[in-house]
Design a binder for these strands. Structure first.
Lengths: 183, 183
DNA sequence: ACCGACATGTAAGCTGTTACATGATTCC
DNA sequence: GGAATCATGTAACAGCTTACATGTCGGT
């Protein structure tokens, strides 16, 4: 369960409500999220039971009462301990690999189309990311070092997609060179 | 459900038993797998119900009867249709990002240790992959083109990890330059 | 009159993981 | 004698996703 640490992380930055967290995850490119608040609210209840966060309720007219979550000392410790624990490499699970692995079933044109779709997706995502960065999204920058770390996260993201783009382009180029005869 | 297509893919190469598939997934670096046969056997039953694979049973003395799965015409079609459908980019979900995002909690030495652990993991994996490639793992090569495609899969894998390695090295270098004063 | 933002949550289902269960054979 | 390989599967649970449910307020 990695989401609990992502939440603790955000709360180590600033107190937030579940609704805030939902939006933060939705915006974030580094903390993947599907669009489901179920998990967030459930995890918050769990974190509170374990004394890792504290709730402050804030009534506000006719709106539902906001529950503002604050990280506790124990929560900070738990987060820090997790960060320090043995990091694991990301799993390179790319469904596109499965397609490509068996795409000798396709003829030259079908394969070319497939690769071109993938390339377009990559270009699109890179453009969207660049635009987001240009507009400037919120992220913690309580110290020069923290700012630097988040800059490096962005760099990783971009480098990763650009690496993939370079790869697919080479793939397409070599295919066109070697199998230009449509076989 | 992407595993069904990974299985259909393998069966489009050659008939296999569930046990064979289990080993193939375990060996494979491109088709991620956790080590659970539950899903494989279940999926095979499902594929058979849908008429995408056919079973040939083979009794063999005291061993349990082997069930050899062969792909049907319908299975091949379904696989091909899926391959041709809109490809999706891999989700860049790297739990290490969560650590790094909040690692301003750490002091210089702790952070340095974390990064160094990650770098070591990367180097280790790259070495293992290279060794595997050197030994030569089984993969389909029914045509020059198919061989080429699998070579490109390997290249993607390596490029991806090497890209990550270059990134973490730059990160470490810049940290040591800018915050050599242990703050 | 309707849509999106604010704010909370629940229910149902699918996917994936860990662990269990059986039983013969072969290698060290 | 014990571990690994061959070969099948099941049970229980953890995690994640989709969709539903409720209700106010402000803008077009």
């Amino acid at each position: 369960m990695t989401i609990q640490y992502a939440i603790l992380g955000y709360l180590s930055w600033h107190p937030f409500t579940g609704y805030d967290l939902k939006k933060l995850f939705a915006e974030s490119d580094y903390f993947y999220w599907s669009g489901n608040n179920n998990q967030i609210y459930k995890t918050l209840v769990l974190l509170q039971k374990e004394g890792l966060v504290r709730i402050r309720e804030e009534k506000q007219g006719n709106y539902p009462t906001r529950k503002i979550y604050t990280i506790t000392e124990a929560g900070l410790m738990k987060l820090k301990m997790w960060i320090l624990s043995e990091p694991q490499l990301p799993e390179l699970r790319n469904p596109f690999f499965i397609r490509l692995a068996w795409s000798d079933l396709l003829d030259a044109e079908e394969l070319s189309n497939l690769l071109s779709m993938y390339e377009k997706e990559l270009i699109g995502q890179l453009a969207m990311f660049a635009e987001k960065q240009r507009r400037g999204i919120q992220h913690p920058a309580r110290s020069k070092r923290e700012e630097f770390l988040w800059k490096m996260l962005a760099k990783n993201w971009t480098a990763n997609r650009e690496n993939e783009l370079a790869w697919i382009r080479e793939l397409r180029y070599q295919l066109s060179q070697k199998w230009s005869d449509n076989r």
